[in-house]
Amino acid sequence: MSDTPTVRTEKITKQFGRFTALLNISIEIAQGEFVSIVGQNGAGKTTFLKILSTIIRTYEGDAQLFGSALRRAGADVRRRIGVVLHESLLYPDLTVADNLTYYARLYGVSNRHERVAEVIRRLDLDVKARSLVRSLSRGLRQRASLARAFLHEPDLLLLDEPFTGVDERAAGLLTDSLAEFKKRGGTIVMVTHNIDRAWHLADRMIILQRGTLAFETATSITTTDAFRTRYEEILGGEA
């Protein structure tokens, strides 16, 4: 385990015009830690994830991934991140296998055919591997998107509502995959509305409210009910 935090942000602020999406967010996430970020719509969860994934590159404050400044993150840092967003990032006119092979090439995966076959098998996509992404249901697209994120064996997974649209069986596959990823030292940041699922998986819970860090706690030192009560108090305060 490395002493350098996988994620370190200091006073991250992001504005879209006059709207402040994030305000002074300072967080440290250690290697191997699973952090869930919850909050209402518009709380800044996805914006925070997009900053960490290098999609949004203009913001105030400092952010580091693996000890490197995020603003100057080069190919070596981006290669270590796996991202699942609301959209699948898959080309609708290519098959699932073609998409995964494309991303494997893009990330320089050395044993790409074996690796593509492996993630297809792990996410139970064998039957749909030769189907165009355009023809897949929302749930299957989400599974293919997860396969894409796991493909290059990243060290950090950034997940935005990864359980949306997936059935119970696929949710089980994803839960197992995340547990396995964490077991081998991977770090996970997951944005979700589902407090129960997040609590079950995470080491630490963070509540974002109107772009600010309203509360954080380790899941080992409190209960789901206590956290939920706190969450509702914070949201109630907003209302």
């Binding site: 999609i55 190919a75 290669r79 609301h86 959209e87 990032l89 080309y91 893009l106 992404v133 697209r141």
Partner: peptide, 18 residues
């Protein structure tokens, strides 16, 4: 336009491609 569907532009941005 083909990168816009399903957010593939973001897929390019997060990838190691310069």
């Amino acid at each position: 336009a083909l990168e816009r569907e399903e957010g593939c532009t973001q897929g390019l941005l997060i990838s190691p491609a310069e």
